[in-house]
Nucleic acid binder design. Structure first.
Lengths: 342, 342
DNA sequence: GTGAAAGCGCTAACAT
DNA sequence: ATGTTAGCGCTTTCAC
């Protein structure tokens, strides 16, 4: 089981009595090499068990064909779909992916950014951690001219391409839907407002209330870490409100589900006593009873688009001036919000 | 925004009037370099904006400090926990992770294995795709002496380290629990029996039946792809059985949940009419009603252990002869299986 | 259409 | 404790 010596282009060159340069060209399908020579080269390459040495090549060409990805967590349906989309596009274009989880902390995000920098990724796709305030840790990459794309959770002000959905609009639609169902006191469970996604969802909620003559009540907005475990706590807060609210719009499905469980345990009927809407269209929505109304969030498409855009920037193709791409997404109405049976 | 010239150890050497070798050593915290010189080196390195060139280093040392991971999918609680565990251990030891999803097909798994090979990973951790039959695509890596570790879904016969739980035993326990609850006709929803995890679970189920005087009935075992979408189909099959079964042991939580939904829709009471047990302890279990009895599957620990073992093999430390590691796991009893209230 | 040769940035054996 | 030197495997300019 001892590892045999690595085969290099020199070995191929020697067996064929040609120069290493020709081998290098032949392997890369260089036009100036004759078909016959190319064929011979490829044959002996496989015969000898040659594998290209990426490092030598990278060292020469100064490009790595590697794309970095930094995400808060992998274990959501949205994220793993997004990454599947990225992988497909990246692989098809001959790029590799290095994936890293920030586990929702800036600290780990900074470490990851540095690792990516030192790994000399050709480009980077990022969705921010829960508590990232400034994005100076990405400056080194930007300064070196490494294309950076933010998706989903994007920074407030930045010069990079952002790929998002219209959080404001769908939040508006969700809130409006609750109002249409007769809700008058609607709670919004928000995430950290430093994150665009949560800030925009809050604004959509507020605007929908305003447009429908419902006075804003600061007590009805609570900030949560949006875990399923945060549900009971949020519910406790909600149950202590007086008068009781009749609708909830949560900034993600996990906390919505956590709430529903706690509310049901407290004897509340959903949607009769209180209607509820989540966000993301996680598989959970169709398991909880009643099924949860939510916002469809197209993970795979977003990943696909992010990677495509990035690769276009790398290769200089396509619309490289686009600074913001907004994907379509929409409200999916299920039982948890339908007070009025249709 | 134009990228300035890359700083190399030669630039640092020149500014300090020392040799590049000293700089290289200083940066690596080599013991033979004086504290003072090291400090100077590190200072000018940051001042100049130096970043190490991994490729040059890899080219020299012939090691990449990169570990590959190939998994069926990322979007299960189990997998992303496992990967989080791996990342933590790997990063702490100075390794990077390249992660790839086989999306449950051998075809993609083969591609991924090749990519890993050409990326010259120092080691590889693999959980097999649903339909992988032989593992010859990993031979190239094995031949080159690249340590390979299988976890969770491991091949039947192989010379690599396997990290697993005792699927047989916990399946036995789960089935025994159903029997203790009074179940006489227990269905097992199995996965592809080429996968150790599903074959072992089936055997545990069968042995528990045998040990308790219940005659085996081939009609009660069905093979499923174990998606939540497979639940209704499996349920249809179950509802057509005569006499009706009174217990189900499913090889994962997703299909168990899918079944529960369909059973409830068909008017079956759980656990009164039919008790049910899943596998994995996915967060879903605590959302479905009644809460699903399942097997706890320690993802994070498994990832941690896999990475630790691999890195030990790479560095030559630790027990490198271990060929099989079995993690503790156990039955978690919830409402879905308790016919007898305790 | 093919070859010669230099050099990418780093490391490590050897020398001092 | 530090310096000299050769070379990892590949690409590419220039030459023929």
């Amino acid at each position: 089981m001892e590892q045999e010596k690595e085969i290099t282009i020199y070995d191929i060159a020697k067996t064929l009595n040609i120069s290493p340069a020709t081998v290098s060209r032949g392997l890369k399908d260089h036009p100036a090499i004759s078909k016959k020579t190319k064929k011979k080269i490829n044959e002996t390459a496989t015969a000898l068990g040659y594998r290209s040495n990426t490092f030598a090549s990278n060292l020469r060409t100064k490009s790595t064909n590697t794309i970095g990805v930094i995400v808060p967590r992998l274990n959501s349906n949205f994220m793993s779909s997004a990454i599947a989309g990225m992988e497909k596009v990246a692989n098809a274009a001959g790029y590799n992916l290095i994936i890293s989880q920030s586990l929702e902390t800036v600290k780990k995000e900074i470490l990851s950014a540095n690792t990516m920098f030192h790994s000399r990724v050709d480009g980077l796709m990022v969705s921010l951690a829960y508590d990232t305030e400034d994005i100076s840790h990405f400056e080194v990459l930007i300064k070196k001219g490494i294309p950076l794309i933010f998706f989903d959770r994007v920074p407030q002000h930045n010069s990079c391409t952002n790929i998002v959905i219209d959080n404001y609009k769908v939040a508006y639609d969700a809130t409006k839907h609750l109002i249409d169902q007769g809700c008058k006191r609607i709670v919004h469970i928000a995430g950290n407002l430093k994150r665009n996604v949560y800030a925009d969802r809050l604004h959509g909620y507020e605007q929908a209330l305003a447009d429908n003559g419902i006075t804003k009540d600061a007590d009805l907005v609570l900030i949560s870490n949006l875990n399923i475990e945060a549900g009971p706590e949020a519910t406790q807060y909600i149950l202590n409100l007086d008068p009781q609210p009749d609708g909830i719009f949560a900034a993600n499905d996990a906390v919505a589900v956590g709430c529903m469980q706690a509310l049901k345990q407290a004897g509340k009927k959903i949607p009769e006593d209180i209607a509820i809407i989540g966000f993301n269209n996680d598989p959970l929505c169709k398991v909880i009873e009643p099924n949860l109304t939510t916002i469809d969030y197209p993970g795979r498409e977003m990943g696909d688009l992010a990677a495509t855009t990035l690769i276009n920037q790398l290769t200089g193709k396509g619309d490289i001036n686009v600074s913001r791409l907004v994907l379509r997404s929409e409200l999916i109405i299920r039982e948890s919000s339908q007070k009025i049976k249709s």
